[in-house]
Computed example of a mutant assay.
Amino acid sequence: MQNIIDGRSIADKILKEYKKEFEKLAKKGIFAQAEVFIIGDNPASLSYIKQMQKAFEQASAKLLIKSVPLNVKTSEFVNLIKESNKNSKIHGYMIQLPLPNHFDKKKIVDAIDPRKDLDCFSPDNLGRLILGPEFEFLAPSTAKGVIKLLEELNIEVQGKNITVVGHSNIVGKPLTLMLIARNATVTNCHVYTKNLSEYTLKSDIIISATGVPHLIKENMVKKGVIAIDIGYAKKNGKVYGDFEFEKIQKRAKLITPPIGGCGPMTVAALLENLMIAAKNL
Rank of each mutant, 00 (worst) to 15 (best):
L175I: 05
V157Y: 09
M220L: 03
L99A: 03
V157D: 06
N188Q: 12
Q249S: 14
G241F: 06
E17G: 12
L270T: 14
T193A: 08
S75Y: 10
L70I: 15
N42S: 05
T74N: 11
L126M: 12
A184N: 06
N79Q: 15
A111V: 07
A143W: 06
K19H: 12
N273G: 08
R182C: 07
I108G: 12
K62R: 15
P100W: 04
A181P: 02
G40P: 00
A44M: 12
F22Q: 06
K105W: 07
M94V: 09
K13L: 09
P43N: 02
N195P: 02
S75T: 13
K62T: 15
K253P: 05
A209V: 11
I228Y: 00
A252S: 11
A26G: 13
T163Q: 01
N183C: 13
G159Q: 02
K235R: 14
L15P: 03
N3R: 06
Y192G: 09
K54P: 08
Q2C: 11
K27F: 08
L118R: 05
G159F: 02
D113Y: 04
S75W: 05
I207D: 00
I255L: 00
P133K: 01
K223H: 11
H190A: 09
T266N: 05
H214A: 14
A59Q: 10
L138R: 02
K234T: 14
E23Y: 06
F137W: 10
D242F: 03
V239T: 13
E244Q: 13
E76V: 09
R128W: 03
A26D: 13
E156I: 15
Q2S: 14
I206R: 02
K50S: 11
S122M: 08
P114G: 07
G231Y: 00
K19Y: 05
A269L: 10
N71M: 12
K235C: 09
I170T: 13
L179A: 05
V164R: 01
N42C: 03
A184R: 06
A44F: 11
S197N: 12
P174N: 02
S141K: 14
Y18E: 12
D242R: 02
E136V: 10
K107S: 15
N188C: 13
G261D: 03
V157P: 05
E23Q: 12
I276S: 06
P43T: 00
M178K: 07
V191D: 11
G231V: 00
C262H: 05
I248G: 03
L153T: 07
V72F: 13
E272C: 11
T142M: 09
Y199C: 02
P258T: 05
P43D: 01
Y93M: 02
E76I: 11
F103E: 05
C262A: 13
P258G: 03
E244V: 08
A139I: 07
F77D: 08
K238F: 06
V191R: 15
Q158Y: 10
A233K: 14
G261H: 01
G159T: 04
G166M: 00
G237M: 01
S9H: 12
K253H: 13
I81C: 09
S122L: 07
C189D: 10
A61L: 08
G7N: 00
N161T: 13
P257D: 03
N87P: 06
C262L: 11
F103M: 08
G92R: 00
T256C: 04
